[in-house]
């Protein structure tokens, strides 16, 4: 996704969240105070709408400018590159976004982490949510061991013995440390 399109999308999303937030403020009970409990949430909601729209507008504006520049120059060179140059020129403070992976600003700067495919990210989050959901009913020991085993096996299926040992041992050690060491009772689940 190009930067301007990402910004357009982000801006719109923020504006929508702001709108929802603002609408929710109508259900706050009004009081007789000068500044009511509603005042601040309402300001925050409106600010989110404005900032979101501003970000989206900025993206559209820059995109149009880039396109114009491209037409004017009549070159077939990448509009993206040029866009980025103008972006940084447009604002003194603005340096390019971290996900552009162009860490060449400073001396010891590390390269930004490469992007993982969205499909995999979604999959990881789904696994995580399943773990959160089963933690209490199934219990800490079983769910944690299964979760760890799952994650490590997806990552390194060939080392399954190591993964199994780690998953079980880590779950048990943590359980013992929290329950017997700190008396923080983790859910026992079906084992109880």
């Amino acid at each position: 996704m190009s930067t301007h399109r990402a910004d357009l999308f982000t801006g719109c999303a923020v504006a929508v969240i702001g709108a929802v937030y603002y609408i929710a403020t109508f259900s706050i009970q009004e009081t007789a105070n000068i500044v009511t409990p509603r005042t601040f949430p309402a300001i925050v909601g409106i600010a989110l709408i404005v900032l979101g729209l501003f970000l989206a507008g900025q993206a559209i504006f820059r995109h149009r400018k880039n396109t114009l520049a491209e037409v004017g120059a009549g070159s077939s060179g990448s509009a993206e590159v040029r866009g980025d140059v103008q972006r940084s020129a447009a604002s003194v403070r603005e340096s390019s976004d971290s996900d552009d992976a162009d860490g060449g600003v400073g001396g010891v700067v590390l390269e930004a982490p490469p992007e993982a495919p969205a499909r995999k990210i979604v999959f990881q989050f789904v696994l995580f949510f399943i773990y959160l959901a089963i933690l209490i009913p199934v219990g800490f020991l079983l769910s944690t061991a299964a979760f760890l085993m799952g994650l490590t096996s997806i990552y390194a299926p060939d080392k399954w013995i190591r993964n199994l040992i780690f998953s079980v041992a880590f779950a048990v050690v943590i359980y013992v440390a929290f329950v017997y060491g700190l008396a923080v009772y983790l859910p026992v689940g079906i084992l109880g």
Binding site: I17, V44, L51, L55, R93, S96, D97
Partner: peptide
Amino acid sequence: GSRTKALISIFIGLA
């Protein structure tokens, strides 16, 4: 990075 985005972050925190 963008000031606008930093402000958005602040208002998300406030929200």
